[in-house]
Design a protein around this nucleic acid. Structure first.
Lengths: 148, 148
DNA sequence: TTAAGTGCAAAATCTTTGCAAATGT
DNA sequence: ACATTTGCAAAGATTTTGCACTTAA
């Protein structure tokens, strides 16, 4: 972790009036390091030194503040990812595509992808969309291809 | 429940080599009666006479057989719905739009809606899509409108 | 100094597993 | 009759709550 990113995390906590504690900084650097969402069990594994309860509280706090977002994978397990690294305050779009690999179970947040307009049946007033795709991610897809 | 639908449920169980037991028929009629998915907690409430464990096993069995499908709502709670009433064996499409009302929390399965094509980043090989929309369902939307 | 955050213990839930009794075929 | 399915008890797992101790500001 560079000096720069470290400072970024501290600024992020400041911005949300959260104290800059070791566990919180660790969670931030952990989640920021990956371009895929991380499941709660995985987080617990990596952060074995942080108390399980503390982790729950940190994740909830971050989610409430809009620092991270939660997405459930195919098994109903909560996965967490930094709220669209490029999701600035002014331009907060919840329209993600989440790609859940059926092989490695990773959840990719493909924020850049546009979700096309859809016309819902009469009466429904949507305020947000989330699209899930399942299938093989590039990594697993490559492995399958090699095996052939 | 009409004679006709009752027979339909029994046929459905037969087809999947499941015994026609009272709890199973009850679950089927319960889920078929609604056009929205039902959460596990709600199911437990309505089926208080059926053992909790039995309900788990019935739902799992039905899901494995493809009789019902499971969808997680915004809170990560499992909701169940009949597998697209019109989802015949030959034409099984997993592409649903699930509409999760933020007011009543109901999950509507809008199976008829087509999900438009999307081009994923290179390398991703999707095999299924599920689209979630959140917002107000027609019923709650009407209530809000009235309140104004 | 003190309000916020952490860690531990313990409660409350949720889900699974094992097994004897009941039920459908 | 016999294989399935149910219901209960009990184990396992997940999530929440309470409270004393610690730490950032």
């Amino acid at each position: 972790m560079t000096q720069h990113t470290a400072h970024k995390f501290e600024a992020l906590l400041d911005k949300h009036h959260l104290k800059k504690t070791a566990p919180r900084l660790k969670v931030l650097s952990m989640l920021s390091a990956k371009n895929v969402a991380t499941s709660q069990p995985d987080l617990e594994g990596v952060m074995a030194d942080i108390d399980r309860v503390t982790l729950y509280r940190i994740l909830n706090a971050f989610e409430e503040k809009g620092i991270i977002h939660k997405v459930f994978d195919l098994n109903g397990t909560a996965n967490y990812a930094m709220c669209s690294s490029n999701c600035e305050e002014n331009h907060h779009h919840d329209e993600h595509l989440h790609f859940n690999c059926t092989s490695c179970n990773n959840v990719y947040c493909l924020d850049e992808l546009e979700i096309p307009d859809l016309h819902l049946p009469k009466g429904f007033k949507p305020d947000g969309f989330t699209l899930y795709a399942t299938g093989l991610c590039p990594k697993c897809n490559k492995v399958v291809a090699k095996a052939r």
